[in-house]
């Protein structure tokens, strides 16, 4: 299924070094249009870096990132921000900022300097707040929100940007189970109903398998495997990429694969230590 859709984004031979450490190592990745791509991998594998690199936020990244076939290096910062939205990992803003003030920030790439606030801007902000259910909270200070409300306010900020492609870096961190589902269902709805292309970084493999059209395992700065969740959720791959010995079953509710880790994959971790 994912293979049939044309790529919106094509990452080619992306390399990024921090000092002498190679964080991304000639990584290549297609991001299919109108699909949910989930990046998963162990800590430090480079998945968050990859997400930021897609938005060209790193100094000294080498390789190509094509957006609809055009190198994003040729696009201005605002042009790019009108096409790809990014919700950073653990984003922050002053606690006395109101929800509405936060969501309005999403209109930045659509506004020229000193251009007055337009009806179009207002409508976009309103739609984003209604769509995430924070319209009733718009005068609240973000410091007074619960974790789930705050995350929805941030997603509203990214939605107000009105980009076809939305990247979210671990959007459900620090949320309880109900709010994790709320947040990811909202993202899935954006994908289904508005046809947005979504790129997510998720830590929880079962959530990743449940929401992904295309699942990507990132390991040591490279894409180790990508495909449908059923193809990737195998004991062999989980042992290699995540160093866990896991049983794979099919979730009886959604029909997606789920994994149940028995423990660390012994052979691999011994080799790592040695």
């Amino acid at each position: 299924m994912a293979e049939l859709a044309p790529s919106r984004i094509e990452v080619r031979d992306l390399t990024l070094m921090y000092g002498h450490d190679t964080v991304l190592d000639a990584l290549s990745l297609p991001v299919p249009a109108g699909k949910v791509t989930v990046l998963a991998g162990p800590n430090g594998c480079g998945k968050s870096t990859l997400l930021r690199a897609i938005r060209r936020l790193h100094q000294g990244q080498r390789g190509q990132i094509l957006l609809d076939g055009v190198d994003i290096g040729a696009l201005g910062a605002k042009d790019l921000a009108r096409q790809i939205g990014l919700l950073a990992q653990s984003p922050s803003a002053p606690p006395d900022m109101s929800v509405e003030e936060l969501v309005r920030l999403g209109r930045y790439p659509h506004q020229a300097m000193l251009q007055p606030w337009s009806e179009k801007d207002g409508a976009a902000v309103n739609r984003a707040m209604v769509g995430t259910g924070v319209d009733t909270l718009k005068h609240r200070r973000i410091g007074s929100l619960s974790g789930g409300q705050l995350q929805r306010a941030w997603i509203a900020m990214v939605l107000a940007q009105e980009t076809d492609i939305i990247c979210l870096d671990e959007p459900v961190n620090h949320l309880d189970m109900a709010h994790q589902l709320d947040c990811l269902d909202l993202v899935a709805k954006l994908n289904r109903e508005a046809g947005r292309t979504i790129v997510l970084v998720l830590h929880d493999l079962n959530l990743a398998a449940r929401y992904a059209d295309q699942l990507v395992f990132v390991h040591e700065g490279r894409v180790r495997a990508l495909g449908r969740p059923e193809e990737l959720m195998t004991p062999e791959l989980l042992a290699e990429v995540f160093e866990v010995d896991a049983a794979i079953m099919t979730d009886p509710v959604h029909g997606r694969p789920i994994c149940i880790p028995r423990g660390r994959a012994k052979a691999k971790s011994v080799r790592e230590i040695a």
Partner: peptide, 22 residues
């Protein structure tokens, strides 16, 4: 005043501001 919108966005973290095209 000319920088006011960019300064608004800079109140958020660097990644967010850069992601908005600042």
């Amino acid at each position: 005043i000319g920088l006011s919108r960019a300064l608004d966005a800079l109140q958020a973290d660097d990644s967010t501001a850069a992601g908005l095209g600042v």
